[in-house]
């Protein structure tokens, strides 16, 4: 009978719909879990894919806390504070980890000809940008602080892992590489725990392990310098790489209508104003990228590009204040523009 046929058809349609709906509910590709914590004065998130026991997050974050407690300039109890307090008073034995990080920091300072300098501490402290009471320092104070900035005055004694800061008042600030170092360590730890893919994001200091779950490269957004957090100016595609950005929008304060940002020129002591808005470095080591992004920012467009092109396996995206984006040679098609108002110059 026709009626029964159409009835049966209706019933079948309903059940096909229901099963299809139920099917859409399940079938997640690879489960993604993410945890965040406050470390290194910023928000640190770790995103894992596939099976990720909670203990992995705990392992990594507790290791990060340990690193922070050693490298934090503002924590009076940290090994770094201990070292800084003894500036000009003779060599200080430091934990091996701090020894290595400071050594790396000095190496990068040398490599960039002092454009990045971890002895910027005294100047940084005067400005206190990002701290509780930032203000434009008195020029005499600034000159005095600037005279203490010199990476050549840091002497290492391999025996006993001792470091000597030659002048009284010198101060090492690892703020420029600590996050990078920590991100590298976190990535290493995750690899040791068996994770083939993961995203480590320590306040914009990003390490992308492996590939996306669909085996395509990770798509990392670069923050738009003039827009709110989360708006991207462009996207870089990376596999097993780190992406680190230094931007003048990240930390700043205003005084008398002038905006002062946190990237300080190691020669003048003032925030760098050379037309650069942000510098993004893509390479293998996050610590290196951290140091290089600051150095390139300080050196400016031409000298910065030149510095980067001298390294193998280091790529850069420089965003200028007149709406231009400069790319290093090797970046190829891995960069795609999002805000078309900007002009890409390769």
């Amino acid at each position: 009978m026709g009626v029964q046929k159409s009835l049966r058809a209706a019933v079948i349609v309903v059940f096909v719909l229901l099963t299809a709906a139920a099917g859409g509910l399940g079938a997640p590709s690879e489960e993604k879990t993410s945890e965040a914590s406050f470390l290194f004065d910023t928000v640190c998130t770790i995103t894992l894919y596939g099976k990720a026991p909670a203990s992995h997050f705990i392992d990594v974050f507790s290791r990060m806390e340990e690193i922070e407690s050693r490298l934090d300039l503002y924590d009076d109890g940290s090994a770094l504070s201990e070292l800084n307090r003894h500036a000009g008073m003779g060599p200080v034995a430091v934990p091996e980890e701090l020894f290595e990080v400071v050594k790396h920091g000095i190496a990068y300072s040398r490599l960039t000809g002092g454009a990045f300098d971890i002895t910027i501490g005294p100047v940084q402290q005067l400005w206190d940008i990002g701290g509780d009471s930032p203000e434009v320092p008195d020029s005499a104070d600034l000159a005095a602080a600037l005279s203490l900035v010199d990476f050549k005055k840091v002497i290492f004694f391999e025996h006993g892992k001792r470091i000597l800061l030659e002048s009284r008042g010198m101060m090492i600030d690892l703020g420029g590489i600590a996050k990078g170092y920590a991100a590298d360590q976190a990535a290493k730890l995750l690899r040791d725990l068996g994770h083939r893919r993961a995203l480590v994001n320590f306040g914009g200091n990003l390490v992308a392990l492996g590939t996306r779950p669909d085996d395509t490269p990770w798509r990392i957004g670069i923050q738009h310098p003039d827009r709110s957090r989360g708006d991207t100016i462009g996207i870089v595609e990376v596999t097993d790489a780190t992406v680190v950005t230094s931007g003048k929008y990240e930390r700043f304060f205003e005084q008398d209508g002038i905006r002062y940002h946190h990237i300080l020129d190691t020669t003048t002591g003032y925030p760098v104003e050379n037309g650069v808005a942000s510098v993004t470095i893509i390479t293998g080591s996050s610590m290196k990228a951290d140091a290089l992004s600051t150095a390139v920012f300080t050196l400016g467009l031409e000298a910065g590009l030149e510095l980067v092109n001298g390294f193998d396996g280091v790529e850069v995206v420089i965003v200028t204040e007149n709406d231009e984006i400069y790319l290093s040679k090797g970046i190829g098609d891995d960069f795609s523009l999002v805000d078309t108002r900007f002009k890409v110059i390769r």
Binding site: L199, N205, A208, W218, R219, G221, I222, T232, I235, T280
Partner: peptide
């Protein structure tokens, strides 16, 4: 943090 439907097309943001 907003979780759930990921409307942004990037996996992470460098800032």
């Amino acid at each position: 943090e907003v979780t759930g439907a990921d409307e942004t097309e990037v996996d992470a943001l460098s800032y």
